[in-house]
């Protein structure tokens, strides 16, 4: 990021582990977590859709829990363990959730998809046999404007299968 003089800047030193890698940086307290991840760390796979906590495109895992990173400040994540979409695949092998989305055409433009996948990741970390209600509850916090959700539900079910037989 370009640094230009700005005499009102107040910064805080923060550190966090993202996808297993430790980062330290000075940030303005007003920097949202998503702007920090994208702008400072260059992890642009997390997307910004509404900046007021409705659409879910910016969802990341914060200490294992899916949260909306547009309505969390970077300073609030000081010391936290984060996971973003860049941390899902194992090298050239897609994570089972990613593979399920691919096989079920669970995405079209793909802008909302990282958020969906991270919420499913949290769910499947908690239970290997989620109920239909739990899947709905998980996906209900995300907006997708392309797919009409049907293929996303199918992808979620396939991901459950894949995780179980992994």
């Amino acid at each position: 990021m370009t640094k230009e003089p700005n005499d009102v800047t107040i910064t805080r030193r923060i550190s966090m582990t993202v996808n297993g890698e430790r980062h330290e940086a000075d940030v303005e307290p007003r920097t949202t977590l998503v702007d920090f991840l994208r702008g400072t760390l260059g992890l642009t796979g997390t997307h910004v859709g509404c900046e007021h906590g409705v659409c879910g495109a910016c969802t990341v895992l914060w200490n294992g829990k899916a949260v909306r990173s547009c309505i969390m400040l970077a300073v609030q994540a000081d010391g936290a363990e984060l996971k973003t979409v860049e941390g899902l695949a194992d090298g050239a092998t897609l994570h089972p959730i990613q593979q399920a989305f691919l096989e079920k055409h669970g995405l079209q433009c793909g802008f909302c998809t990282p958020g969906f996948m991270l919420s499913i990741y949290e769910l499947l970390g908690r239970t290997s046999a989620p109920t239909e209600e739990e899947i709905l509850d998980t996906l209900g916090g995300h907006l997708c404007r392309c797919t009409g959700y049907q293929s996303i539900v199918e992808a979620a079910h396939l991901a459950v299968e894949k995780m179980r037989t992994r």
């Binding site: 992890l43 796979g45 979409v85 899902l88 695949a89 897609l94 990613q98 793909g110 996948m117």
Partner: peptide, 11 residues
């Protein structure tokens, strides 16, 4: 899809 699913597509 592989690029989209891994967050590598450049929006």
């Amino acid at each position: 899809d592989p690029a989209l699913l891994t967050g590598r597509t450049q929006f």
